[in-house]
Simulated assay, not measured.
Amino acid sequence: MKFLSILKYTMIGNLRDFKSILSYILFPIILIMILGSALSAAFAPTNIGDIQVVVTNEDDGETGDKIIEFLEDDEFVDFLHLTKNDNLEDAKSEVNEGNQDVLVYINKDYSQKLEDSEKNSVEIMSINESDYKVTIVNQILESYISGLNTVFTSLEYDPTNPSYEMVDLVDEQPITVEGNLPQAIDFYVVTILVMVLMYGTAVSAKEFENNLKGEMGRRIRTAPLRSSTVLLSKLAASVVIVFIQGTIVAAISKYAFGANLGDDPMFVLSIILLGAILGCGLGILVCLLVDDPEKVGGVLTILVPVMTFLSGGFIGGSFMGIEKVMPNYYLQNALFNNIYGSGSVNMSLAYIFIYILIILILALIIGRRRTAW
């Protein structure tokens, strides 16, 4: 009963702050509209385009010419455009100036070293080594050189001519871009919705400071109440507010903007609830750790956007695995996997529950030790 009484009166107090509640709804809605519209072209499917390749062949033997013949094969002519340049420095300049995508360099002793079974390689150069065009050229060359190595190895064990069969390396499979593909609005509805839930840190921190510090805090400490009861009731009140905010943002996004949130509204609501618990719990934990009302707001103002950015919430992509440390990452993944069926929902849910458990345990332990209690 004490828990419900504290929850009730805290909720009444929270609902009086209508401006704050409204701001946490309008801000993400406007952000979704801006990002979903401005970056829509980035989510449109495109073909790989032409790959401009310049080749410098200094090989004294025949292997270099054979490699060039292979790259000029009809299988690759639709997307691989070859230019020969005997001057290596000129070829490098073409790549550096952006006139060519990839430089393939075959050194002077390539054929001889291959025959002598010495270590050797065809070099691939580009100003952007992570470009998918470099990967495509590299895979094509590896397939040929792997076959070449197999032939020479076979000759070492059996001097007679080895038998081999030429096969097509490119298997054309028509695909369609229609179907359940995320558009910009779909992507940002999920990531910004999660950011709203993480802003529950500010809601719960404000509630903690307003009601558990100062005069109100002294009254609560002198009352016959367990610290865990007070903390959990305040947390529950904050969770309700954040859950309502998240639900409204999701509903407006789906029914007003036509965003894709899947066909399971109960799952979406469950993720909103879990995200609200996680965000509000994290807010109270930060408040307990910082223990300075003037600094808490600044910490959370930086923390939430940084977490959203590092989890790929603004531009997508990976940050050397750092995104997997962010709770946003698992909330986003749970929604994306449920909507598009692209991975395990259960794994993401497991991490979410682990985060919630760790945060609540730490908050209870630290809360009992603070003099504010």
Results as ranks from 00 to 15, higher is better:
Ile12Lys: 15
Phe18Pro: 03
Ser20Thr: 08
Leu22His: 05
Ile29Glu: 09
Ile29Gly: 08
Ile30Arg: 08
Ser37Glu: 01
Ala38Glu: 00
Thr46Tyr: 06
Ile48His: 07
Ile51Glu: 00
Gly64Phe: 00
Gly64Glu: 00
Phe70Val: 11
Glu75Asp: 06
Glu75Thr: 01
Leu80Val: 01
Leu80Trp: 00
His81Phe: 02
Leu82Met: 05
Thr83Phe: 04
Asn87Ala: 12
Lys92Met: 08
Glu94Pro: 03
Asp101Glu: 11
Asn107Cys: 11
Lys113Trp: 09
Ser117Gln: 10
Glu118Asn: 12
Lys119Asn: 14
Lys119Arg: 13
Lys119Met: 08
Asn120Ile: 09
Ser121Lys: 13
Ile124Leu: 10
Met125Asp: 06
Asn128Met: 12
Asp131Ala: 14
Leu141Ile: 15
Ser143Asp: 05
Asn149Pro: 03
Pro159Ile: 08
Ser163Glu: 12
Tyr164Asn: 05
Val170Asn: 07
Asp171Gly: 12
Asp171Ser: 13
Gln173Thr: 15
Thr176His: 08
Gln183Arg: 07
Ala184Lys: 04
Ala184His: 05
Tyr188Asp: 00
Thr191Trp: 01
Met195Ile: 08
Thr201Trp: 04
Ala202Glu: 11
Val203Leu: 02
Ser204His: 13
Phe208Glu: 09
Glu209Met: 14
Glu209His: 13
Leu212Ser: 08
Lys213Gln: 14
Lys213Cys: 15
Met216Thr: 15
Met216Lys: 15
Gly217Asp: 06
Gly217Ile: 09
Arg221Ile: 14
Leu225Cys: 03
Thr229Ser: 13
Ala236Gln: 12
Gly246Trp: 08
Val249Gly: 07
Ala250Asp: 07
Tyr255Asp: 03
Asp264Met: 06
Ile271Asp: 02
Ile271Met: 13
Ala276Gly: 14
Gly279Cys: 10
Ile284Val: 15
Leu285Thr: 04
Cys287Lys: 09
Asp291Leu: 12
Lys295Ala: 14
Lys295Ser: 12
Gly298Ser: 06
Val299Tyr: 02
Thr301Leu: 09
Met307Gly: 13
Ile315Val: 04
Ile315Gly: 02
Gly316Thr: 06
Gly316Glu: 04
Phe319Gln: 08
Met320Gly: 07
Met326Asp: 02
Tyr330Val: 03
Gln332Ser: 15
Asn337Ala: 13
Asn338Glu: 15
Ile339Val: 14
Gly341Glu: 06
Gly341Ser: 02
Gly343Phe: 05
Gly343His: 05
Tyr351Lys: 07
Phe353Glu: 03
Ile359Phe: 03
Leu360Lys: 02
Ala363Ile: 05
Ile366Val: 13
Arg368Gln: 14
Trp373Ile: 12
